[in-house]
Design a protein around this nucleic acid. Sequence first.
DNA 1: GTTCGCGCAAATATACATTTTTTGTTGCTT
DNA 2: AAGCAACAAAAAATGTATATTTGCGCGAAC
Lengths: 232, 232
Amino acid sequence: MTTVHKSLTARTCDRLRMAVIESRYAPGERLRIEEICRDLQASSGAVREALSRLTAEGLVIAEPQRGFVVAPISRRDLTDLTEVRIDIELRCLHQSILHGDMEWEAAIIAARHRLGSLRNAFLTPGAPEAQTWHQLHAAFHDALAAACPNRWWLRLRQQLYVQSERYRRLSGPADETGRDVHAEHEALAEAVVGRDAARAETLMRDHLTRTTDILLGSRMPFAEDAEARSPA
Amino acid sequence: MTTVHKSLTARTCDRLRMAVIESRYAPGERLRIEEICRDLQASSGAVREALSRLTAEGLVIAEPQRGFVVAPISRRDLTDLTEVRIDIELRCLHQSILHGDMEWEAAIIAARHRLGSLRNAFLTPGAPEAQTWHQLHAAFHDALAAACPNRWWLRLRQQLYVQSERYRRLSGPADETGRDVHAEHEALAEAVVGRDAARAETLMRDHLTRTTDILLGSRMPFAEDAEARSPA
DNA sequence: GTTCGCGCAAATATACATTTTTTGTTGCTT
DNA sequence: AAGCAACAAAAAATGTATATTTGCGCGAAC
């Protein structure tokens, strides 16, 4: 059929999204067009267009006549984000449990297995396995929600997941003392496939809450911590 | 002294958004770059960038190497959208009632007054008052939710409102038999300012449900009820 | 009747010009 | 002498024009 050549703009957009999520650019940092042109081997038009798309995703902010900056972060934002995310994740999960079929269950089991094979690889950021772990983690959570029949809930869920992933990666090796993330995922998958909606939702809520609490406690370069030095 | 020059791209983006919302372009229609260049007196770069931003807002869809098309509509999409929207509007409203201060109340009263002065001007699409009515209607609903302290809820609310506005405008003069929209707004404002959260939420739910039911019953140019919208 | 190839139209990418912002310097005032 | 203001130069973002690539359709050949 037709060779699916993704346009250069799309590739650039994807790479930039990854770069922002992986915090290769710091929050609040100015994104100089020329600099990105060199780094990604693309021309200014493509870069501008890619940046524009990311604007509406909430990853970068366009300041008229002043270019683009990486969206800032703050404890407040993370708290707000988590509140909304819990609500929407739970809703997708609930719908998913109600409507999921056998294929959906199989996909969850498969995703859990892939993720489990890497265990706690996420603890060492920078390692190539950590990259893979994050992808598999996203795939696992996607699989859980996938059977939700309402496309808008899924769309919003996706948006919020990207945001949260940014925070997750931004923290250094966070203090995961006494936490067994793998076990949490196992229990979650178990409850979901077992169609125990109430239990699944509780587990999901705890899962998300715990992650955020750890991030809030970690030494993350939050913007407000730096405001004392450089008031905008 | 900074003269706030909105960049041409931003203006173009706004005008295109309006054009899509007002259905000056039909759902599914191809958006030819050159055509838009002529219409809006902008160059391809600017138009391209504007279109890209609208992509992530869900108003247009980018098909790689094939340009942009207006996001399609369907009964299914409208139903899904409404379900999500009710949930999020109610949540913002609830939070708003809990946290709103006197200024917030005053803004609601003012917005209600402005909207009331035009009464049912929205019934005659195309008229210049209808345009104004839609703006004031958006402002009224914005005012209701404005005191919600969680920026993410507000952001999602805004996204969904834009989508719903598109459907609202897309229908011709819909059958509003036996409906007094003005009265609904009055009652809503009354309950909200009176801090009667339960009643306000019921009224809001009914308000949104009724609108959607009418739209679903109207002869709207639904794209063969095709499930064409992909939330990716 | 199907398939291959040529040509046109449109989207994409790049190079260039313009405008705006920022920064660094100079000179004046306190 | 130190600090502020105005000005000038440089860097960066925005906007335009142009070249390249890709997709689509028509027609001819097998």
